[in-house]
């Protein structure tokens, strides 16, 4: 890789385009850690939000009225308020309360708060998506499975869930792509993700335009790849004979 780094150093000397994130080992490591943080944040939040979505959809189908109401209000609160406000609410509000209880230092790190906040944000949408997906499987299909001797659990695992998942996938993809874009908000509470480390780099190196473009291209590629992969997956899993 050394020749590549050297080429960027030469580029700086020759044109003044200062891409320290390539030739300077320290900046390179910083930026790489930010990139990894963004990817990690996205991945963890995606997994957690799906878990929240499945749990929420399951609770919404349960007989417990109180639990259903709680989930209902959770969805309403999180899908209609700006995610930034949610983030502040968790970090400053709940975090502040915990700090008040626990003493001086923060009990929960800002990274954790970002994960919690973003997962709940995306999870609220996932609950609705999965619930609609399950609703879309006709009762008669479930009955057919049961009459064939499937147990309740088997029916869910082998019939309802795979079908519901395929139906949910396009909506789920929209939501997950949106989630990845929303991870930038973690900047606001100083989580060292890609945007945050970039701002550190450009304030140290005074190369704002270069870093801005690097950042924009990185996000374009990251989100572009995600969109592409998801759409491929969607097409592969599409239920034949069903679609608009």
């Amino acid at each position: 890789m050394q020749p590549v780094w050297d080429w960027f150093r030469w580029l700086y000397g020759a044109t003044g385009i200062n891409l320290t994130v390539f030739y300077d080992p320290f900046d390179r490591a910083r930026f790489a850690s930010g990139f990894v943080m963004t990817v990690e944040l996205s991945a963890v939040c995606i997994v957690l939000s799906i878990v929240i979505g499945v749990l929420g959809a399951w609770i919404q189908g349960s007989r417990l009225r109180v639990a259903r109401t709680v989930v209902h209000w959770y969805i309403q609160a999180f899908r209609n308020t700006p995610p930034l406000v949610q983030l502040y609410f968790f970090y400053f509000g709940l975090g502040g309360l915990l700090r008040g209880v626990g003493g001086s230092g923060p009990v929960v790190s800002n990274v954790t708060w970002a994960i919690v906040s973003l997962s709940f944000f995306a999870g609220a949408f996932n609950v609705e998506i999965f619930r609609s997906g399950i609703e879309a499987v006709p009762r008669t299909t479930v009955e057919a499975a049961e009459s064939l001797g499937f147990s309740r659990m088997q029916t869910y695992l082998r019939i309802v869930f795979p079908l519901a998942f395929r139906i949910s996938l396009p909506a789920l993809n929209n939501n997950l792509v949106n989630l990845v874009k929303t991870t930038t908000l973690a900047y606001a509470i100083a989580v060292p993700e890609m945007l945050y480390v970039s701002s550190q780099v450009w304030s140290d190196e005074l190369n704002v335009p270069e870093m801005m473009n690097v950042l924009l291209i990185c996000y374009f590629l990251l989100v572009g790849i995600l969109v592409y992969v998801m759409h491929r997956w969607e097409r592969a899993l599409r239920v034949p004979g069903f679609g608009i």
Binding site: R79, S132, A136, S168, P170, A171, N174, G241
Partner: peptide, 23 residues
């Protein structure tokens, strides 16, 4: 039908979301 109207609703809203870029 093999799938209920809920499936179509979900797909339709997903496509609408994709078209307008906003939920």
């Amino acid at each position: 039908p093999v799938l209920l109207p809920a499936a179509e609703r979900l797909l339709r809203s997903a496509m609408r979301e994709r078209a307008s870029g906003a939920r």
